[in-house]
Simulated assay, not measured.
Amino acid sequence: MKTRGELKAEVRELLAGNWGKAILLNIIPILGSLVVGIIIAFLVALIVFLINNGVFSGGETTINETVNSSASNSGRSFISGLIGTLITTGIAYTTLDWLRTKNNDFSPVRGMFSIFSRKYFVPVLVLYILQAIFTFFWSLLFVIPGLIKTYSYSQTYYIYKDVNEDNDNNSLNYLDYITLSRELMNGHKFEMFVLQLSFIGWWLLVLVSFGIAAIWVYPYYQTTMSAYYKNLAGDKFINYRG
């Protein structure tokens, strides 16, 4: 397994001279970051204006309003999370192939929406729902167990891709992919956490630049996550039959 520095060096070498293609591949999450950045900038300006003009005043919220708002937010969060997962998984699959073949002759748009196909859409949807259910129940035991399970399940989509790349005759069911991810991440969850934490400076740059830095940071981060799986799993799950 490569070190964090070696993984990032591998990614920077891949992206060198290919940033335009990488940015196009990640354009939807990048635009999402830019929109959020614009909203944050607007809210900051609005809050400063309201404070300066003494407009803030207290208000009352009923219990029913709070409950209804919470339920509505949960539903929106699930849907937005699903859409985001479908798109980012397509990006992850494309970057994984790119890392393995070093071949940049691919369509960024087609790669970004590759999950929306007969081969991947329903399986990724089912895996997303199963992981959401399991993570929810683990989270009932407080936040930390749910967070740990998020890392345990983090390689599920990659494993599904590898197993089914050229093999439709395996004996695995959907729960098996989650189990394989959990087994793969045994002893590596903290390692992945530290890898993600090493990007905190970059994400702070995205924040202070109101999303502009995401143009470079998001492709760098996403490709590094794919490189992590590639180096951790190797060819173990390619055409795996169970």
Rank of each mutant, 00 (worst) to 15 (best):
residue 85 T to M: 10
residue 228 Y to P: 02
residue 34 L to N: 07
residue 95 T to S: 11
residue 31 L to F: 11
residue 15 L to R: 05
residue 215 I to N: 11
residue 236 K to Q: 14
residue 93 Y to V: 13
residue 175 L to H: 01
residue 4 R to I: 14
residue 130 L to G: 00
residue 90 G to C: 13
residue 17 G to W: 02
residue 216 W to D: 09
residue 238 I to A: 11
residue 146 G to M: 10
residue 156 T to H: 02
residue 227 A to R: 05
residue 30 I to G: 06
residue 223 T to V: 08
residue 236 K to E: 14
residue 62 T to Q: 04
residue 191 E to Y: 10
residue 14 L to Q: 03
residue 74 S to E: 08
residue 202 W to P: 00
residue 183 E to D: 15
residue 239 N to S: 12
residue 145 P to C: 02
residue 167 N to M: 12
residue 219 P to T: 15
residue 86 L to A: 04
residue 225 M to R: 01
residue 211 G to H: 04
residue 175 L to S: 05
residue 33 S to Q: 09
residue 109 V to C: 00
residue 183 E to Y: 08
residue 207 L to D: 05
residue 84 G to R: 08
residue 9 A to F: 06
residue 42 F to E: 08
residue 225 M to Y: 10
residue 194 V to H: 09
residue 111 G to M: 05
residue 198 S to V: 15
residue 92 A to R: 06
residue 44 V to I: 13
residue 227 A to G: 13
residue 172 L to P: 02
residue 59 G to F: 15
residue 80 S to N: 13
residue 185 M to C: 05
residue 135 T to M: 07
residue 175 L to F: 07
residue 14 L to W: 00
residue 9 A to W: 05
residue 228 Y to A: 09
residue 111 G to L: 01
residue 13 E to Q: 12
residue 11 V to T: 10
residue 219 P to E: 15
residue 72 S to Q: 11
residue 118 R to I: 14
residue 35 V to L: 13
residue 209 S to G: 02
residue 170 N to E: 04
residue 241 R to Y: 05
residue 133 I to G: 07
residue 119 K to N: 06
residue 9 A to R: 13
residue 206 V to H: 03
residue 171 S to G: 05
residue 214 A to T: 13
residue 146 G to L: 08
residue 49 F to T: 10
residue 7 L to Q: 02
residue 141 L to N: 09
residue 81 G to E: 14
residue 98 W to N: 03
residue 138 W to L: 15
residue 79 I to C: 01
residue 116 F to M: 10
residue 118 R to Y: 13
residue 55 V to P: 00
residue 108 P to W: 12
residue 82 L to V: 12
residue 98 W to L: 15
residue 225 M to W: 00
residue 22 A to I: 06
residue 20 G to Y: 04
residue 39 I to M: 00
residue 39 I to S: 00
residue 51 I to C: 09
residue 49 F to S: 04
residue 63 I to L: 11
residue 81 G to P: 05
residue 182 R to G: 11
residue 235 D to A: 10
residue 128 Y to T: 04
residue 160 Y to L: 01
residue 173 N to E: 10
residue 77 S to E: 09
residue 138 W to Y: 10
residue 39 I to T: 10
residue 214 A to N: 14
residue 114 S to A: 06
residue 208 V to G: 01
residue 52 N to I: 15
residue 168 D to E: 15
residue 54 G to A: 11
residue 186 N to H: 02
residue 21 K to R: 09
residue 216 W to A: 13
residue 182 R to M: 04
